[in-house]
Nucleic acid binder design. Structure first.
Lengths: 367, 367
DNA sequence: CTGTTAGCGCGTTCAG
DNA sequence: CTGAACGCGCTAACAG
């Protein structure tokens, strides 16, 4: 027996097993050239001593640390915790440790990746929503031998493996759902159309309306700046109400935007879903219990996505895949309490002049 | 100049500076015995090459990795993200990397700590809500030379440095607030009174009532099992309503419990705060925008606590402190929309038989 | 099958 | 002030 709390080296067990360190090393690493008895004896002793190999020594020679990095810009959306959870699970399954780095600016993000690589600290990295300006640098790093997976990149980055949700599909599901409930005047509050997420969700919104033969009204599209979801939701509703825009349903960029929108609607005595239906995106945990009966939203399997990202990265690290593939993850509509049938057929449906027939609409500029 | 993406070793820059590796090492580490010119030249070149020292080599010799671990049981409460955020900030300030480990069971948690130490991976660990069963093992590890900080331990663990919020104070603030609003029948839904958190919050509740000369009614105390806050909140309210217990205010173990309670109240057409005032604990980000005007709650400065925990740990690592101190972090009442003045003086205040005078009350057994 | 030896990249002795 | 040599813990290549 041995103090399970003491550090123990390969030498200690060599001494105890009365053999040389190299034999021990071979036994421990399943090399062929060890006699069954010696191996058995060594393994027993190693077990008893609770041997665990030193990371530095192993890393120095193997060139791998067993550490995987996640790099996130800011860290404030519950979504990220779910993502981390998935990664942590996968990491455990593969006996990897998880390194968390938070960098706010684009250049800091790039620097962090580079540094992690150059110091030999991590074997690869998952870059969470990589900055627009970082595309070239990331590709270079990848090429230089540092495996990376971009989660939800701002745009397709050739040469960089990426994992992303099906934004377009999700948006279509949301809007089709609202259409099926009889809504015609459906608004969208969408973040930052410079990035795929915003672009694709907006496109999905438009395509669903077009598909249903519902006219696109630019007044129903509100583009908001990123990173202030709650305020954006409120602002979007305010803008419509102030302009007297007619709407009976809103598709929101994400769940937090939806919360903001609902709160603003409440402040103006519009009831959800009786007066206005609201659909979010992401399905963060809070949405399950949101309000009386939960938020209707497009669910991303966030935790699984985290696992998938990590698995994909490990695969890359092992040279099992060539970089550059783009993995799209299906999303799913979850109907809960914030959406319901449109109250009544709109009067202008039959009597008043209808808006222009379906046509492409330019999104508004960011606020 | 040099490819900023290439790995560069101390040898490379020795060659470029036309000197030996040891001189370079000395220059880089601010040792005295280097001539100003040589140092200058070396620094310039290192800068140009973007030299960063190899973690393995450095760790092997220095015995330190520059990695700090956080170990969390599960990972699902938004609170944890805020905590991580604080740690990430502090880690960056001190040029440390952050390792995230999630272990569900007590023995896995202990094993993880031990392994992290014995493999040399991390210089120390912050153990988030350490398991009850782990106390002895953690103390041993600490004694063996692995610095640890326990965040919110289940009970005071002598010999282990800990950081924890002022549970008792916070509970008193919450209940005093409700008392000041004129509430007399104040319930508490508290998690798991085996751990300090539950114990102290319950004690604070009792002390505040006692202080105000309000009788303690065991029927107003509901103890719920841990890890299902939302359901617990609902269950608590249900229990009171089913039993016909009179109450006009509820102090909840945390914000999620409060959400559950409010939802259940709504389901029974009790309005918050008009019919029932509700106060939470923690102040997670969602509470700011909760409902119409936010959740009244006891705010833990979570992010700062994360920073503090990390700083405390680093201090320990540097031998600046002896293990064992217990750091209590002040909390603060945040009054928002879910608490308001009691509707009317309770009739029985003057006419009906009052419950027993103030006396210690046994908490109920967990559900 | 086994033990000895070199070296991974760096910091730290030592002589010079 | 500088450079060469050693060793951190481990593995791979080479002798035996």
């Amino acid at each position: 027996m041995h103090d399970p709390t003491e550090r123990v080296s390969i030498r200690d067990i060599a001494k105890a097993a009365e053999t040389s360190v190299s034999t021990v090393s071979r036994a421990l690493n399943d090399h062929p050239d060890v006699s069954p008895e010696t191996r058995e004896r060594i393994m027993r002793i190693a077990e008893a001593y609770g041997y665990e190999r030193n990371m530095f020594a192993h890393g120095l020679i193997s060139g791998r640390s067993g550490l995987i990095s996640v790099i996130m810009p800011n860290i404030d959306y519950d979504y990220q915790l779910q993502f981390l959870r998935g990664m942590a699970h996968a990491a455990e399954r593969f006996d990897q440790e998880l390194l968390l780095t938070v960098k706010e600016t684009a250049s800091d993000t790039i620097d962090a990746c580079r540094s992690l690589y150059r110091r030999g600290i991590s074997d690869g990295a998952i870059v969470f929503q990589p900055p627009v300006e970082g595309a070239a640098a990331l590709r270079e790093l990848q090429a230089a031998g540092f495996p990376m997976v971009a989660f939800h990149p701002p745009f397709p980055m050739p040469g960089l493996t990426s994992v992303e949700p099906m934004d377009h599909e999700g948006a279509m599901m949301a809007v089709r759902h609202l259409l099926a409930l009889g809504h015609q005047r459906i608004g969208i509050i969408v973040e930052d159309t410079q990035r795929t997420a915003g672009q694709e969700r907006l496109r999905g919104y438009e395509d669903a309306l077009r598909e249903a033969g519902v006219s696109l009204d630019p007044a129903l599209v509100i583009v908001v700046p990123p990173n202030q979801p709650h305020a954006s939701g409120r602002a979007g509703i305010q803008q419509w109400l102030a302009a007297g825009t007619d709407f009976s349903a809103v598709f929101c960029f994400n769940d937090l935007v939806a919360y903001g929108a609902i709160q603003e609607l409440a402040a103006h005595d519009r009831r959800v879903p009786e007066d206005v239906s609201v659909v979010g995106f992401d399905d963060i945990p809070a949405s399950l219990h949101y309000g009386r009966a939960g938020l209707t939203t497009v669910k991303q399997p966030i935790t699984q996505i985290g696992e998938l990202a990590l698995e994909t990265l490990l695969h890359l690290c092992d040279g099992g895949t060539t970089p550059g593939q783009r993995i799209q993850v299906p999303v799913e509509l979850v109907v809960r309490g914030t959406s319901s049938a449109a109250r009544q057929p709109r009067i202008w449906d039959d009597s008043v002049v209808r808006p222009e027939p379906p046509t492409a609409s330019e999104p508004l500029e960011p606020l």
